[in-house]
Write a protein that binds this DNA or RNA. Structure first.
Length: 565
RNA sequence: GCGCCCGUAGCUCAGUUGGACAGAGCGACGGACUUCUAAUCCGUUGGUCGGGGGUUCGAAUCCCUCCGGGCGCGCCA
């Protein structure tokens, strides 16, 4: 699938100019633009310039010309028309075109970042598309388990990303409060309340013991199973909300499955599907012909006992989301549910919404504790909840840990490592860069150094390789955000911000901001500000804080105070 | 058996949608604080990108196949 990335930011003037000149050169020399368009890449090696393009290699074959020859012709045309900031155009290797630009070009990037401020990295590519993003949606039968934390972090970050691309994003949580799971939960809770063991097919987790005690305190004696279910349900929902609040995630809608049944939405969806002639009766059940839409087999909608299946209810739910005016539906699911994707999509196709919902599948989290894997089943009993994690690490650490890697890879969340290494967790590394910038600003204020307006600031002193390196990364940032959004891959922002923090720490080491050179100081103060914006904007998308001050942590433990005179 | 995901340095993972000698962190080893917070920086060490074919000027990336691992394949949710 193609995911074209369109730049909408005003800034990278030099890059847009280069692309323009490149296209013009293609026309002049008589090469048609390849289907994939013209792309500028960042070479891995600095000797290959600031940007490079493989356009000549793509164009050569259809034109029946040797790649190097095509490249030379293009280079000649480009040199004649290139803006002054393009210092050098080289043909290299098999036929790459490498461009080297003047520092002034990078200074334009700095001005653009400062001008755009918090909007640097934001775009309007989605043009106000109304997107409903459903994530987490764990059953309201207990606290959120630790592995679910991945979907909390990923879902919230993805929502931020889509919004940053101009989407109108709605965070939604689906409460399965009408199914047999809740009944089993109620029965188990009642059993604990009556000091019995839960049924074999019930919920074995110890948390039910504590819940039962609170239920007794609130409701007293003589609680019925239905009362237990309802009390437990409400209590579980408030626990879920509380856990999510601790990590700073807020849903716009908590949708109750019961609503669908009460309003007759489930019956309505069955009627609609019947009218589409995609259902049939067999063995006393009603089936949906999902196999016609790529599912491996047909699926039951109404069981022989007359009750509807999860799929049937879920179809009604997704139909409701569309009826509420959401143009695009995205569901984030764990890979253990991937077998349901086709069925749901097939049903929605029959309901006239082909391609909906988009299901983002993420591989599961393996929680390790004491070197051993922890089973993540609330029903099995051995439970580690998200709240347990938040008891030992702060929300920023938790979030960034879940956002470190691609959701296509199974993640191992080792509680011992995350807590023990928390002082060298990547999140602190990145936040420390931000805090250092804030610290410089404080130092400047103390020294009476005022940052002059950027329009009056000469950025020419910024010529150090460290400085230009920061600006190169900042230039790239809007593309990173756009790609992360289209690929539904928030971890790309994490990767960028870690790399960017590393660049900043390197700069900080080699280039002093506050110096005796007033002009240099002014330029670097603005460079630092642009970096602060880059860090802050990226962390904001990830839902991670960007502190101005960070404590020294336990560093003092290494330095005996007694040593001081 | 079928479907989806994964296999990259000792470990945990990136890898700009096919580019130019494969990257980071941790680990190991060695350096750097009279100067904006050393939660930092610099250097050294370390890889048959699971194996084999194929497409291409060019493959970690695309196709086929095999091996290994995870998760699914209910009139459960």
């Amino acid at each position: 699938m193609q995911h074209p990335v369109r730049r909408t930011g005003p800034a990278p003037v030099i890059r847009d100019q280069l692309l323009h000149v490149l296209r013009a050169a293609l026309t002049e020399v008589g090469f048609p633009e390849p289907a994939g368009g013209v792309a500028l890449d960042l070479p891995k090696q600095r000797e290959h310039g600031d940007w490079s393009t493989n356009i000549a290699l793509q164009v050569a074959k259809p034109a029946g010309v040797a790649p190097r020859v095509a490249a030379e012709r293009l280079a000649t045309a480009i040199r004649a028309a290139a803006p002054p900031a393009v210092e050098q155009v080289d043909v290299a290797g098999p036929g790459f075109l490498n461009f080297r630009v003047a520092p002034s070009a990078w200074h334009q990037v700095l001005r653009a970042v400062v001008e755009r401020g918090e909007r640097w990295g934001r775009a309007e590519a989605l043009g106000g598309q109304r997107i409903n993003l459903e994530f987490v949606s764990a059953n309201p039968t207990g606290p959120l388990h630790a592995g679910g934390g991945r979907w909390v972090a990923v879902g919230d970050a993805l929502a931020n990303l889509l919004a940053a691309q101009g989407g109108v994003v709605h965070r939604e949580y689906y409460l399965n409060d009408a199914g047999s799971q809740l009944d089993a939960f109620g029965a188990s809770l009642l059993a604990r309340y009556e000091a019995r063991e839960p049924p074999d097919d019930g919920y074995q987790g110890d948390y039910l013991i504590e819940m039962a005690q609170r239920m007794r305190a609130e409701l007293g004696d003589g609680v019925t199973q239905e009362q237990a279910r309802e009390w437990g349900y409400l209590d579980a929902v408030s626990q879920l909300r509380a856990d999510l609040a601790r990590i700073g995630v807020q849903f716009d809608t908590w949708f109750s499955e019961r609503t669908l049944h009460e309003r007759g939405d489930v019956a309505a969806v069955l009627e609609e599907l019947s009218a589409q002639h995609v259902v049939f009766e067999e063995d006393g059940a009603t089936w949906l012909r999902t196999s016609a839409h790529g599912d491996s087999r047909d699926r039951v909608l109404v069981k022989s006992d007359g009750s509807t299946t999860y799929l049937c209810n879920d179809l009604a739910y997704h139909r409701d989301k569309l009826a509420r005016g959401w143009e695009h539906l995205i569901d984030i699911w764990g890979a253990d549910h991937h077998g349901q994707v086709k069925s749901l999509q097939a049903g929605l196709a029959a309901l006239g919404a082909p391609g909906e919902p988009e299901v983002v599948l993420g591989q599961l989290v393996k929680i390790m504790k004491g070197g051993k894997p922890v089973r993540l089943s609330r029903r099995a009993g051995d439970v580690i909840s998200l709240a347990d994690i938040l008891d030992v690490v702060d929300p920023d650490v938790c979030r960034l840990t879940f956002l470190l890697q691609s959701i296509d890879t199974a993640q191992t969340f080792d509680l011992d490592i995350v807590t023990a290494q928390s002082m060298e967790n990547p999140v602190y590394y990145v936040q420390y860069a931000h805090a250092r910038i804030a610290s410089i600003a404080r130092r400047a204020a103390v020294a009476g150094i005022e940052r002059r307006p950027i329009l009056e600031t000469n950025l020419a002193p910024l010529r150090h390789e460290r400085e230009l390196d920061l600006l190169r990364a900042l230039e790239q940032y809007p593309d990173v955000v756009a790609e992360a959004a289209t690929l539904r891959a928030p971890h790309r922002v994490t990767t960028w911000v870690r790399d960017f923090a590393a660049r900043f720490h390197g700069f900080y080491r080699d280039c002093r901001v506050l110096t005796d050179d007033a002009a240099l100081t002014q330029a670097r103060l603005w460079l630092a500000e642009s970096c602060r914006l880059g860090l802050s904007n990226a962390l904001d998308l990830l839902g991670v804080g960007a502190p101005d001050v960070m404590e020294r942590g336990d560093a003092h433990l290494d330095e005996p105070d007694a040593g001081a005179p």
